[in-house]
Simulated scan of single mutants.
Amino acid sequence: MDLEKHPQQPAAPAQSAPAGIRASDADRDRIADILRDAMAEGRLTAEEHAERVDAVYRAKTVGELEPLVRDLPTPGGGALPSSAAPYAYGPEAPTGPADNLVAIFSSSTRKGRWRVGGRTNAFSLFGSVEIDLTEALFGQRLTVINATSIFGSVEIKVPENISLRGSGTGVFGNFEVVTLESADPEAPVVIVNGYSVFGNVEAKPKRGKLITDLHNKLRKHLGH
């Protein structure tokens, strides 16, 4: 009788199905937290951390995220949670070539009405880089900024009604990201990663600045 029951057992492949599920922001943030802790514990070098974090925010599925922490201790263990929330600003992950802002014994500024790319590299060496997103146009929901400051500064300003997250380190310097979580589930998400050496990297909201289309959309939703 036992032999007759065995064919009715569910097939093993069902366990691997979640690997193909689209990764959510929460999935990526969980992996980024694990990588940050691993670097703080000396399990990863700063270069390894930067490479893996960049891969985290390019990953499209849960299966692409899991190998990034396979050789690291993962608190809680278990499969990554998943969701498939719709995106209103285009691709869910950065695509295309990165924009580069470089300041070596100089300054570089990007502000005003401009279209933000999916990925921006900001590098300051004895200089200053300013990125002002308060009037920018977001062509995609997720924007990643990789900021490196060596004896210089990188300053990033964002509107108050988007989500701002980040992960980085300061070596005899300052790396600060003022975390924001927008009440609008369709709001753009800006991720700031990197490090500073005898320098400063700072990302924060600019008081009173809102993305216009999000503001109008909220008013429409409330019936005003």
Score class of each variant (00 low, 15 high):
176 E>K: 15
213 D>K: 15
41 E>M: 08
120 T>M: 01
132 D>E: 05
11 A>D: 13
78 G>C: 09
195 Y>M: 12
216 N>K: 11
75 P>T: 07
124 S>W: 03
24 S>E: 13
165 R>M: 11
12 A>K: 10
53 V>S: 05
121 N>W: 04
188 P>A: 04
132 D>H: 02
20 G>Y: 15
181 E>V: 13
214 L>R: 11
212 T>H: 15
108 S>Q: 05
77 G>L: 11
22 R>E: 12
160 E>K: 06
57 Y>K: 01
107 S>T: 10
169 T>G: 08
199 G>C: 14
204 K>L: 04
119 R>S: 06
73 P>F: 03
155 E>Y: 02
65 L>Q: 02
223 G>I: 10
222 L>Y: 06
131 I>S: 00
51 E>T: 08
200 N>Y: 07
72 L>I: 10
143 T>Y: 00
78 G>A: 12
79 A>L: 14
93 A>D: 00
216 N>T: 03
60 K>E: 10
70 R>Q: 11
19 A>E: 15
160 E>S: 08
48 E>C: 07
10 P>W: 09
49 H>L: 10
104 I>R: 05
218 L>A: 12
186 E>L: 13
195 Y>G: 09
217 K>F: 05
71 D>H: 14
39 M>L: 12
47 E>Q: 10
23 A>P: 13
34 I>A: 08
203 A>L: 09
179 T>R: 12
37 D>E: 14
68 L>D: 02
46 A>Y: 06
115 R>I: 00
122 A>C: 02
25 D>L: 15
28 R>H: 08
42 G>Q: 06
125 L>Y: 06
26 A>R: 15
82 S>K: 09
20 G>S: 11
6 H>F: 15
14 A>E: 11
109 T>S: 07
148 T>K: 03
103 A>G: 00
211 I>K: 13
112 G>P: 06
131 I>W: 02
200 N>L: 08
32 A>Y: 04
74 T>R: 12
124 S>E: 00
9 Q>L: 13
81 P>K: 11
195 Y>L: 12
1 M>T: 15
183 A>F: 11
178 V>D: 06
95 T>V: 11
94 P>S: 09
218 L>H: 10
122 A>L: 04
220 K>N: 03
69 V>H: 03
204 K>V: 06
176 E>Q: 14
150 I>T: 10
75 P>V: 04
6 H>W: 15
40 A>L: 05
29 D>I: 08
167 S>L: 05
83 S>C: 05
163 S>H: 03
135 E>I: 01
69 V>N: 01
96 G>Q: 05
133 L>F: 08
